[in-house]
Write a protein that binds this DNA or RNA. Structure first.
Lengths: 245, 245, 245, 245
DNA sequence: AATGAATGAGTATTCATTCAT
DNA sequence: AATGAATGAATACTCATTCAT
């Protein structure tokens, strides 16, 4: 049923898989085309038959990743936010999400947990490509800004599919700078860091894979909870409010 | 004799500065020795007079950074934790820090704020080398594990100066796995991410440098506060407890 | 069966035409087989179905050109020289052509004019292949000596069809070294140069195509006239004689 | 006295000499950089130390040749034409050079002979580079138009040093299209052809080097003489005039 | 301390040619 | 007759490193 087609993979796929593995292990600059050919078990020249060059492979890999992530985000928006807004159980205010009651908050937090679990799971499955993305985003390369796709998904810009989706749901909510920054450095980047350092971290701690993931998800939850206040979720992390708890 | 210090840096310093800049911009593999020579305005062969090779420069840079960070951590332990323990205002329990009263908590949180400010400031000043550290830690290189220095500083190991310091203060506290993981992904890595992506993030947002730093520090605070419960700080992020608030 | 000739050239012809164009534009070494395939709009492998390799195409092209030129020369010999000899209006002496009278000279010069016109016209039509011939003749290649076909046509050698033709007409005339050299560098090569540089020269001057050709033919005439002396044509360019005019 | 410095040539010179030889033998495209390195007996990488690439060597070679030729032409203009104009023995008319008497013509023709001898001698000495120039001028390369330097030297253009020299001598003579064409295809190109095909032609004929050169010069003379008419040299080859002789 | 020259081992890419279908 | 895939041998060019001075 789920018969895996390991043997019958064609050369092009083997090249891509080899490139992903090597770029993620040695970096783009540290990977030689002949390494890719060797690992993919193809003739070096064949790589140039399918791709215009080493960089072309990188571009294709990252483009695919960014497309996947965009689709993933879109799906979350649709499945969770938009539907609750339509239900009337969630209302968007200037600087917070206000839920109709405690039940709605719990339901939302539950769905967030599910979303985080899926996101972490996706990130782990694609940790090699994400590692490549991170490596490239740290250099002055053409892919330097690819990591900021996540920020761009929050932009009010017609080229942004997420924004257009939200527009159609009549959402005129404004992300505050603080919220975006918090989201970026304490929600999105931790997941990315978790994915790219997963294997290393596992080796350094003595935790089981399962445990490690669960504890990480628990920590994620902590950072969300930090913003919950009654049946509202603050879209800005204001110390005074939180400290007053 | 001691003259000729101010007028202009000597060649060796210029080489190091050039290497830091280029490694952080293009990565170690992406940087050519001749690039360094050009930027430092020295003859390429002179680099081999001062260093045994390209990798030697990298090693020296990272060793220095790691030493600085270790010293920085030691200082924090001494200045804050150890002294409060000696005062008797702080007691270490199995899974939490218990303070003598609310005042002591506030005082500790205050000193934490100061520490974070200093840490962020240090990270920003050294963001180029930290970027290099991060780049190398993402590859299968000899420096792959340098990032885990932070974890090693929590190890019960005689080679660990922090641990020895704590031992001398008779501290038999046990960091829980959860606490370490939370610290790593939601406290240390955000600071590192903030430093390495600082310039890019500033460009992508429209925030002023000052604002950006303050907002980031505020967010850091939020993640600490998430662990405060009465006059205790939980060394494990337990949802049940926190949600019960 | 014989149908499908007009509708569109078949692949083989397209390959040859593409090769002629590309070899003449970029040289043999500068042309890639895939360039030919692309221009001919055929699959690269098909070229190896029709030809044994890249060089095979070149050989075929040049062989065809050399055959054409040989035939062209033969035709001239027959139509002009041999017939006049048989008429008795032309006699071949040791170092000159002696005509029976001024009329015969004029008639010969006229036919020469026609011959030049035809030669120039042929050269222009085939300027791409001639350019290839010239390019190859300038290199140490197997075709290096193909250009000297023209000289070989003057050799006393049984493999030389022109010589055999002349033999049959009982012509024991001896071309002088001077005459051959003059012919080669001031009659044949100018035509070849004119053909291969035609397009470029046209661009550099502002002359119309028609004008350019006529002026060139006029110049050819001048070099022939330089050898006419009374009703004789000297087969050696002797300054003393000519200056005495 | 004329001690040759074969041994002590430095690497850069050896590279250039090797490149000249190989480009002229195999063409630019047909020459491998490693061939040059082998012939020059230097390490391949050293070629890239002195030159930016294979093409750079070609550019430098051709630039040098074109500069030499320009200087050569300038010298001729100065030494022969300008001086005769100044002493009143030569007058430039619309379409002809008019000399003061037969003596002046002979003197000019003499100096022309000397000039031709020098030109042929220069061309032979530099026949390798000229061959390269010719090869490149036959391709659609950046040097395609370098051969037309000769035409450009006749242009009325301030960038043209020859023209400026002539201007200073108050010469407002107009070259006719016919004259330029005749000069190009029957004076300049024959010399170039003679140079590039010299070795091959010598092999194909059985002439001695000395003889070959003298006969060629004699032929050159013939083409000049074809334009002499009394004590005038026609700057256009008009059949009617010449035939009437 | 400094440098111009030199080099061995790579490194991405190309290209004529072949193969299986 | 035609083609997509595949390959070995090159080929221009690079780069860390060394050497002689």
């Amino acid at each position: 049923m789920v018969t895996r087609v390991i043997e019958s993979e064609d050369s092009k796929d083997r090249i891509i898989k080899a490139a992903v593995q090597l770029f993620s292990e040695k970096g783009f600059d540290g990977t030689r085309v002949s390494d890719i050919a060797d690992l993919a078990d193809v003739n070096k020249a064949l790589i140039y038959y399918y791709f215009t060059g080493k960089e072309d492979i990188l571009d294709i890999l990252l483009r695919q990743l960014l497309n996947d992530i965009t689709a993933f985000s879109m799906d979350f928006i649709h499945t969770h936010l938009i539907s609750m807004i339509r239900d009337g159980t969630l209302e968007l205010k200037e600087d917070r999400l206000t839920f109709i009651d405690k039940n709605a908050v719990d339901s939302f937090l539950d769905s967030m947990r599910g979303y985080y679990r899926k996101a972490v799971s996706y990130a782990l499955e694609n940790r090699q490509i994400i590692r490549i993305l991170m490596l490239e985003s740290l250099k002055n390369s053409k892919h330097q800004n690819d990591l900021y796709l996540f920020l761009k998904l929050l932009n009010k810009n017609d080229n942004n599919p997420v924004y257009k989706t939200i527009l159609n749901a009549d959402w005129d909510f404004n992300y505050s700078d603080e919220f975006i920054l918090y989201k970026f450095f304490f929600s999105m980047m931790p997941i990315i860091n978790f994915a790219v350092y997963f294997d290393d971290y596992k080796n350094h701690s003595d935790m089981e894979e399962e445990d490690l993931i669960n504890r990480f998800l628990q920590s994620c939850q902590t950072t969300i909870n930090a913003l919950v206040c009654g049946n509202e979720i603050l879209m800005r992390n204001d110390c005074s409010i939180i400290e007053s708890r």
